[in-house]
Amino acid sequence: MSNEISKFSDPGLPEHVHRKTDTDPKAEKRAEQQVAILFVLSAFFTVLTIYSYIFIKTNTFIFLPIMGDTNAHQFFLGIGLAGSLLFIGFGAVHWAKQLMPDTEVVAMRHEMRSEDVDREDFVQTVKERAGTAGLGRRSLIKRSLGLAVGLIGLTPLVMLRDLGPLPRKQLNTTSWTKGTRLVTDPGNRPIHVNDLEVGAVAQVLPELPTGTERTLENIGTDAVLLIRLRPEDFQLDSERLSWTHEGIIAFSKICSHMGCAVALYEQQTKHLLCPCHQSTFDVTRAAKVIFGPAARPLPQLAITVDSQGYLVAQQGFTEPIGPSFWERSS
C-alpha cells in the first residue's frame, strides 16, 4: 500500500516578489528619508536625555495622566534614553527591511556527524595516543591517579569550613530567661499588666542588660507577640494556662514554618495569620495550626508579673523557636 501513496510535493521556494522600494525610485527615496528621520529622532532624544540630566531638578514633579504626580527628572531622563535607543533600533530595522536586499538566500546544511573516514581516523588516533601513555597497562598509576583526583575534591569543601561557626546549641537559644522584662518594639519600654486592654496586642522584645546592644540576630529569635484576651476565651490545658497572665498570652513571632514574622492578629476570630505562606494559628488554643503549611504551633512564652506589676518571662522558651531543623527533637 505504501508504495502507491505519494505525499504532496514541495512546490519549491515561492517566486520573489519585489518590494515597492525595489521598483519605485520614489518609494526608495521615501524609505531612505524615513530611516533618516528615525535616526534624527534618536539624536533629538539623546539631547533630551542630556538636557534632563543637567537641567531638570531631581525634585521637580509633574502631573501625568494615568501615572499621577511623577518625578520629572526621572521620567524625562528615562523617556530620553528610551527614545534615543528605540529610534536607532527602528531606523536600523526599517533600513534592513526596506532598502537592504530582501531576496531569501538558501544555504545548505551539513550533517553534524563527521565523515566515516574522519571518525575512524579520530578513533585510531585516540587509541594510538592513549596507548603511548600506557594508561591501559599501568594499573598502579591509574588507581593512584583515581585516588588523587577523587580526594582533591575534598579540598574546596574543607576550605569552605570557616565560612561560619558550628551551630552548636545556638538554634535552641534565645535571650529570654526567667524574669526578663517584656519591652516594646520599638521603644524598649516595659509593659505594665494594666497597659493592655482586652483585644490589644503589643510587639515585644526581651529587655537586654544595660550596655548590651540589640542585634538583628537577637530580634530574629527573640521577637514576641503579646495579646490580651478575656481569660474565659482560652481553651488551654492547666500548664499553658499558667503561662498566661490575666488573659495576656505571649507567642514567638517567628513562624514555626519558615521564620517570617507572624504578627497578623485578627481580634474577632483570635487567629494569627502569617502573611508569607498563610499558616493560621488559633491563639485561644495555644497557637494550634488551623490552616496552611506550618506543622507546629508557635512556641508560647510563659509570662507573669514582677513585684512592680511589669510583665516578665517566667522562663525562657521551652522549645527552639522558628523553622524546623534536623537536630530539633520535637
Binding site: 565560612l163 561560619g164 551551630p167 540576630e217
Partner: peptide, 9 residues
Amino acid sequence: FFAFGGAFP
C-alpha cells in the same frame, strides 16, 4: 550557619 556566618541574618 556556614552560609550566613552564624545565626540569621
